[in-house]
Write a protein that binds this DNA or RNA. Structure first.
Length: 272
DNA sequence: TATAGTGTTATCGG
DNA sequence: ACCGATAACACTAT
């Protein structure tokens, strides 16, 4: 399930193999995935255009679209959110697939149409599809990205301090708040707090300047590690988020709780 | 069969 | 109005 690193991998697949191919068909008939659009609305808006660039902020992606032939006006940006279970698969003209992530494979074979919720067909016979079993992903035109906070991988120290400055929420809840910082999901948050040795339930107003700087270092390091490793499931503490799990640093039991409405695992000794 | 889950958002109460 | 907590969403896996 996608957090910032998985979404970045999907974005980079789109940028590498989907740009510049003319869209000749669009399947936007899934009324869940394509809310708030009516079936056909996205199709009409995109036919005859190409994707010209692929962007990302936090877990949200959007693609710029070209003018149609004979016009100078670009098309509407196409927003894509992977939700809990989405992934992007791009097919070449010969059917060869480039998969934007293998975190939800379930033995999927190339060409498998199960869970296909949205797709573009290109004039070369290839396609770009959103595969999303749980249907919590979204595809929409003109996505609102202004409401997102700074991308977690690019956030500056002063932006980070500002994100933690107000209110009294548990620090983990704030890390998960996409309007404060964009891109951190449940596993990344647990890894970051574990690395910084900060208890997830501590209020943001109790954090010292030193806590905050350790936290920002952990944000950067965890994101770098997850992008390099191929996803958040490769983060070092993730395998120990289970009953009987022990902290890989001090061997103390990992304990489970709920913070910010999400399942939370922490080291019982280092994150009391 | 019942429950949890790598995300977002509407809604409710303080 | 702001902030935080919770339920709901849709579906699969355990």
């Amino acid at each position: 399930m996608p957090e910032l690193p998985e979404v970045e991998s999907a974005r980079s697949v789109i940028a590498r193999v989907a740009l510049g191919r003319v869209i000749v068909d669009v399947d936007d008939t899934d009324t869940y995935e394509c809310r708030p659009h009516r079936p056909g609305e996205i199709r009409t808006a995109l036919l005859g255009r190409t994707l010209t660039d692929a962007h990302r902020r936090g877990k949200s992606m959007w693609c710029d679209t070209s003018p149609v032939n004979g016009s100078a006006v670009a098309g509407p940006p196409l927003g894509i959110h992977l939700g809990m279970s989405g992934k992007i698969v791009v097919a070449a003209s010969d059917g060869t697939e480039t998969d934007g992530g293998d975190y939800w494979d379930r033995g999927r074979q190339p060409g498998d149409r199960r869970y296909l919720r949205f797709s573009l067909t290109f004039d070369d016979g290839g396609s770009m599809a959103l595969i999303d079993p749980r249907r919590l992903g979204r595809v929409r035109l003109d996505p609102l990205i202004d409401r997102l906070g700074p991308d977690a991988g690019l956030i500056t120290p002063s932006q980070f301090r500002a994100a933690l400055a107000r209110g009294s929420a548990p620090v983990k809840a704030r890390l998960l708040d996409q309007e404060s910082i964009a891109g951190i999901g449940n596993l990344l948050a647990d890894q970051i707090l574990w690395q910084a040795r900060i208890s997830p339930g501590r209020s943001v107003q109790d954090l010292s300047a030193d806590d905050i700087s350790r936290l920002l270092r952990a944000v950067r390091q965890a994101i770098r590690a997850a992008v390099a490793g191929g996803g958040v499931h490769t983060l070092s503490v993730v395998p120990f988020r289970k009953p009987g799990g022990r902290c890989p640093r001090d061997n103390a039991p990992m304990v489970r709780s709920t913070v910010g409405g999400r399942t939370t695992w922490r080291c019982s000794r280092e994150q009391p």
